[in-house]
Design a protein around this nucleic acid. Sequence first.
DNA 1: CATCATACTTACCATATAGTAAGTAGTCAA
DNA 2: TTGACTACTTACTATATGGTAAGTATGATG
Lengths: 199, 199
Amino acid sequence: MNTRDEILRLGEELMRMQGFNAFSYYHLADALKVRPTAVHYHFPTKDALALSIVNHSRETFHSFAEKAALEPDPQKRLLKFVQIFSENAETGKICLMGAAGADFYTFSEETRAAVQRLVSEIIAWLTVLMRDGRKSGDFTFEGTPRTRALLIATNMAASLHMARILGKQEFQRIADQLIKDICPSRQSTAKSNSERKEK
Amino acid sequence: MNTRDEILRLGEELMRMQGFNAFSYYHLADALKVRPTAVHYHFPTKDALALSIVNHSRETFHSFAEKAALEPDPQKRLLKFVQIFSENAETGKICLMGAAGADFYTFSEETRAAVQRLVSEIIAWLTVLMRDGRKSGDFTFEGTPRTRALLIATNMAASLHMARILGKQEFQRIADQLIKDICPSRQSTAKSNSERKEK
DNA sequence: CATCATACTTACCATATAGTAAGTAGTCAA
DNA sequence: TTGACTACTTACTATATGGTAAGTATGATG
């Protein structure tokens, strides 16, 4: 892996672990055993780095969407989406929506626009999933597919904050109930039985 | 208002607008027309300031809970809770759960514990509301009251990110549908008719 | 072999930042 | 009126930070 890719990878990790304004060029350089100016060579300004991180995240999501499109079952497609967040809950990372949303007003207009594009793409993908799932009878919900997509996205994004603050187990509680709410056939998911411990 | 209170007020605002690591003692001091050391006088370290901001937020929530307890109608109590977030969506502020959740790993153990207490208190309050509302027949939902509380809290927290990124109107969409989902009697809320514009 | 681009490096800089030490003006109580 | 306390101030420091300018090693290309 080349330095540029490593900077992007570590930059995204730090952004989602500590926040974009909590790390510096020195932190990146030190961890990657290069001089801070090597980071400037690839990303002249810090905002240019933010923009690249966001756009890299968009590409990652596009790859996910492409792979997920091979899965015809809407319920399984939703589970794949939830699985991404589940992995982040384990590591303590929040998603880029949550991280970039918090740092939003410290970004340039260009970077904000990229964040907007990323989130729009995620909501659009979920909206199609909700529409498909309702049509096929896999999902049952009130309101428009897009509104349901917004509800699921907000549940997922903030559940990572909850996992950090209250403990990892809270993620599965949220994810399980969210899936049950829109999947009438499911009384429980394979992954978890945490709700049986609840009163 | 004295300097200490002003620092707390502005500190919380900056924390929720830009993130805790995006402002400095100088920023606070400059805005309040004092020297940065005056801020150090009241809050020796930046983490001490973070701790005070979080605990001040807890007190604010306790005041809200006290006032809300006078309202016997669970639906109206929920609307009062949602109203707090609605006001923040207007100004572009995110809630302290969202802000402190993003900056969580840059805080001391003591400050993290305070954040945990704040979020626990909010979830506990919502849990009681869900339990009461279900008992009285005002709310209908699947799963435990606490899990439903987590779902509502995550919807509200991240809807403020969505309001920033995609536009203020997204908040009302989320809030309206969330209320409809658990209030079987309501087909629409008094405050909004945004869903009529949806397809 | 020359030369050109890539991916760095050293050297440097202005400013920002968190934090400390010591001094001072005003209030208040014995 | 003296002394203590509060709420600041000035003066200062070490380090961090984002960013620039100029030089260099390496490898590919004509």
